[in-house]
Amino acid sequence: MNPSIIGQMAVSGALMGLVYALIAYGFQLTYATSKSINFGQGELVMVSAFFSLTLTNLGLPYWAMVPGGLLFGALLGLVVERTGVRLALEQKSEGWILLSIILGLFFFSAAENIWGRDDRPFPTPISADPIHVFGVDVTRLELSVAVGVFAIMGLIELFKRRTLLGKAFEAVSADRDAAELMGISATRTVMLSYALSGTVAALAGILVSPITTVGPTMASALILKAFSVAVVAGLDSGFGVVLIGMALGVLESLASFYLGSGWREAPSLTLLILALAVRPTGVFGKAVIRKV
């Protein structure tokens, strides 16, 4: 087996893994504030990508389209929070799991009927010509994924650590009641986390669409792997999702080479179930102390 081919696959796998990591990071954002995640996150990725495509088709230049798409993602995140999550959280039930699945299904159906069922190309000014780095071919397009992922995660982490609002975010995640006592509104913090999560999903859609094309089912495979990454890495560590995301990306690109492309999903899913058996809170997750 040619080592350069392995290297080639590892690199493109890892870059794809960053997209999984980014979506998984979206789960972490909401989990931190409310212990809930949006099971319809994949549909947010897809609908935001379609919306961005529409913006482009309306003649908006790429750099003006991106903020528009991100804003739309944030709005969708807020819709999910309001309709699917808030009531269940108030009732301290886990109804949000079912409700966020349902909302995802609705978005899916809406997208099918608004934009059609076909996959469509997503235009981008970033070149898809390969450049040669260390014996491996990478396109600028693929690199743009890495840049985008690290940029937004870096920005959000910076926000969490350097601004008071970000610290409030961390405070709610550490102790919701105590945060309320400091004058921090937990409800608004949860809203903010869903908006951020939606933004992250939209960015994932915009970054990955030029590579995979846009279609109603574009996110169904993505989201499964993002779930795996989130569970394997745990829902606490941003660093963890990047690492696990890249590892999974490499693994699946090797699996599809050796076992056939249909088995792409197998390693991540198997890894997920195995990881659960060994460490239920995730590799980078925090242990939970039970109280009576």
Binding site: T163, L164, L165, K167, A168, A171, A179, M182, G183, I184
Partner: peptide, 11 residues
């Protein structure tokens, strides 16, 4: 700092 959250600039 979070103790003074209510009256501080948020960013």
């Amino acid at each position: 700092l979070l103790g003074a959250y209510g009256r501080l600039p948020k960013f």
